[in-house]
Amino acid sequence: MAKAIHYEVPAPAMPDEAREELDKLLRNLHERGVLRLLNDLLGAFPEVSGILMRGINNEDSRNAIQNLSLLAMGLGRIPPERFATVTRALTEALDAMEENAGDRAPGGPGVTGTYRLLHDDDLWRGLGPLLEGIRRFGARLGEPEEKPAARRHDLE
């Protein structure tokens, strides 16, 4: 005779989610061959690290690292909208160059043509900023070489 009896279902042990995530990560790393790669790498660490350091620690690599950094810092000083204007202008200039490159050589402008060019306002409006840019660019090239970080410090 089975009389009713109550039973409190015990709360389940909390699943170890971190452990499950870790297991999953391990499985994925294994299945994608990443673990093998890392194991191989670690196994050969003394040799590989020596090769890497020799590769990095030479004049060319040091220059590359510094120049990339300079480029990044330079880009950081340019407001995006200004840079967008420059890249757009550059794209259009390249397009124009490409279009004209295919044309048959038109020959020299001649005296009359040269005279007309001297009075072409559009041309001088275009060349003006370019010439000013070249002027400043030349002046800056004439300054003594220095590390950019130092220069930034001086400016501050």
Partner: peptide, 16 residues
Amino acid sequence: FDQLDFMVVQEIFFTR
């Protein structure tokens, strides 16, 4: 149910 000699319940929760 009280009268049964033997009873099996297959469930997902501990019901009445």
